[in-house]
Amino acid sequence: MPELTLESHQQPIYSLAHRRTVGVEALLRAREGDALISPLDAYARHTGDRHRFDLDVAATHCRHAAQEACADRWLFLNVDPATLASRDHADALAARMLESGLSPSKVVLEVLEHALEADDALIDNARRLRKQGFLIAVDDFGVGHSNLDRVCLLEPDFVKFDRNLLRRSTEQPRTRNLLTKLVHLMHEIGALVVIEGVETETDVLVALESGCDLVQGYYIARPAPVPDGDEAITPRVDARWDELMVRELMKRKLSRRQIELARQAFVQSAIALMQGTAFTDAARPMLALPDVIRCFLLDSSGRQIGRNLNARGSSDTGQPKFAPLADTTGAVWSRRGYFQHAIDQPGVLYMSEPYLSMTDTRNCVTLSMAIEIDEDLHVLCADVLVAR
């Protein structure tokens, strides 16, 4: 029978900010003689002992990485959940990796997210290895139901987003917004984010927009015993950076113009209100602008006075299914930032961060200003549509 040979291939993990490869994921390639076979077949032809096979694979990857002598790169290793679920097996794995000469701080152990769901021993052992100096990554985050509480309990150094999350983000604007928020959420728990499956120019642009830290995929570099270096990778990524910067610059120029027009019209409406003009007439300069959705007026406690005044062609709800939210008369918006900022600084125009409007679930910013009408403090508000 031909001899079974285990080989280690590496796929670069690239830092968008540093513009260089900062890690590699080790991927198994197995040969039986001259024929390439799958890892599953390799396991079957090995000893039949899953744990021993995992140790030999880890040793193969670590020896290869040690020979590369890349002191400034992490080695990302996939670890079988069954290995981490056993303290003895986890200790044996750590010992085998240390024999290669690699420092624990250069080894990132990848744990599948779904394996965290009901295995306290796995989490305990992973955290113990982390205390020994190894780094921990949650792999395939975003597959099906995500266990955020378990991820937080593990306290990973990295979270690797599943490639399907990226696929959906390139096709659906709402998922793209979710991707950005998930990146921020992982940053909040102290983890760097790796987006996997970056295979096209569009994938790179979405990854860049998301604010993620690291990327991995065929567009960056394919797995190989000695994969592409940064001299090949960086020009590809830089071209997408340039494309994104041009696009963002155009968007900002457009937004600045739109916001400036909205500010001017808002001040005009506010002055008219303070001079005693009826709200329906005073709001006309604002409602005439193409990106203004609605105007509304609040009293000094944040309670809405009357219904929304909607721009021409717009209704209280963008879609009939949101009709139960249409009438906001008497609604209390006192906890909204746009009200609180306005009431704290009367006469100062405030613009909120983009958010999802509860009235019709469109993304908007709200302009607001506290003004006196008939000697009582009111807050004038206008919602301005922003692109997703």
Rank of each mutant, 00 (worst) to 15 (best):
L380G: 06
V384W: 00
L112T: 14
L244I: 00
A118H: 12
L273Q: 03
F161D: 11
L16T: 11
G48L: 09
N125F: 01
M369K: 01
Y43W: 13
Q268P: 00
G347I: 08
Q67Y: 07
A121F: 02
L367Y: 08
L166E: 14
H145P: 06
A288P: 00
L185Y: 09
D119R: 07
A283Q: 01
D281C: 09
P81F: 10
F158Y: 12
R31Y: 14
T170E: 04
R52Q: 14
L249M: 10
Y350F: 15
Q340P: 05
R294D: 08
R303P: 01
H187P: 11
W333E: 10
R87A: 15
D49A: 12
Q67C: 10
R150E: 05
W74Q: 09
L135F: 06
A207T: 03
E199P: 01
T234C: 09
G144K: 07
V108K: 02
A232V: 14
A44S: 13
N177C: 12
T180L: 11
R222K: 15
L153K: 13
G48V: 10
L297G: 07
A270Y: 00
Y338G: 07
L40F: 05
Q340V: 12
R163F: 04
E231P: 01
E231G: 13
T202V: 09
R174A: 13
T47L: 15
E117C: 11
W333F: 15
C295V: 05
S368N: 00
E113S: 07
L166P: 07
R150K: 09
E260K: 03
L367D: 08
N363K: 08
R257T: 14
L98F: 06
T202S: 06
R20N: 07
